[in-house]
Design a protein around this nucleic acid. Structure first.
Lengths: 199, 199
DNA sequence: AAAGTATTTGACACAGCGTCAAGAACGTGG
DNA sequence: CCACGTTCTTGACGCTGTGTCAAATACTTT
């Protein structure tokens, strides 16, 4: 076999950076090829298609991001954990200059569009999967807190609510780009969730 | 002057339908031209560019949608008003088959991508403007309810929170397509907002 | 009726996606 | 140590989509 002349992971990282900055549809394989110092055809040979390349690059990101969230949710009082969770979420949206937004949310709204195309469906599942795993993480944190008497609401409902708010924050970030506003909403949400009385 | 051979508003409606179903980047002017029975060049002559056409079509939708929301928020107890508001929001996401999602949220995440292109910025403002106007509508409703003693929270913060949740619902809709789940989240949100004690 | 003006039409240039055949580089078996 | 086969690379091609332009067209106005 002839060995590959470029590093698979390097290309994935470079590609995801472009996808993140310019959107999936807004990034051309020529851009990635130029940035990575690789011929366009080689990308097709190695990854098959633009969407397949994106998916691999996204999975890479998703794994890293999930680990970071897990860490953020792992220490301190429930309020501290949730605050760290929202902090990391917002910091992620606002990373880069200009800020790149939430790749999951952007991908979902961008690719969840086409009707009936096979690969878009695979992408949708990848996005949905990360959202589900984050929801589970939050729910576990709430359940554990409930056992310790730190939380007296419904963990499943509250986790879903929190996830919904984070997705909404990703949208407002694109609309206004106002980080202070995002943090206010996050803080208000934590108050709402923790102050809730029964059920 | 030679008169135009097609109806301006018809084209806007047909175009928006396509944009809504297939996304802005996923819709070609050829698609719209075919659907509208118009030559592609005529669209450029009449609207200037794809984005300009989309913007006009979107403004048309935004006006109609805002009116409907205003109506939904106009009658009954605060809980009834908010329920009607979320109902209309979710119904809007779920309209069409397959469901088309929220055009504003999809547009924001899809077009808010490119860095520094002029027309994308105009689109971003159009989306942000509708979001702002809806927020104002909700806030006014809450303020009025507060004066009647029906609500004792902070109208501005609560309105922002509600808007954030609706944007999050738009994202979850694309991720899971589960309308029942969306309605549960909405109902839970109303509970949270109305049960909140001080501040 | 003739002139003027806006619209339509079709051709063009350009960029992006994806495919293909041909060439190149490396490991492996004789 | 050399020839073979496998895999990667390269460049050309077809297709679709965006946007531009000049020429042709059809209507209104004088």
């Amino acid at each position: 076999m002839r060995p590959r002349e470029f590093d698979h992971d390097d290309v994935l990282r470079i590609a995801f950076d472009q996808f993140w900055r310019k959107g999936v549809r807004g990034t051309s394989l020529s851009d990635i090829a130029r940035d990575a110092g690789v011929q366009r055809g080689s990308l097709y040979n190695a990854f098959g298609s633009k969407e397949a390349l994106f998916l691999q690059a996204y999975e890479r990101y998703a794994g890293d991001y999930l680990l970071a969230l897990q860490k953020a949710l792992g220490t301190g009082s429930l309020r501290k954990r949730l605050t760290a969770f929202f902090d990391l979420t917002i910091t992620n949206f606002r990373s880069g200059s200009p800020p790149r937004g939430c790749p999951t949310t952007r991908g979902l709204m961008e690719l969840g569009a086409a009707e009936g195309e096979g690969l878009d469906e695979a992408a949708r599942q990848a996005f949905a999967s990360l959202v589900s795993r984050i929801t589970a993480l939050v729910q576990d944190t709430l359940s554990a807190a409930a056992k310790r008497g730190e939380f007296n609401g419904n963990p499943a409902a509250a986790a879903l609510h929190i996830i919904t708010v984070t997705r909404g924050l990703a949208v407002l970030e694109r609309a206004y780009g106002d980080e202070v506003q995002l943090r206010k909403i996050a803080s208000h949400t934590i108050d709402l969730v923790l102050d809730k009385k029964g059920s």
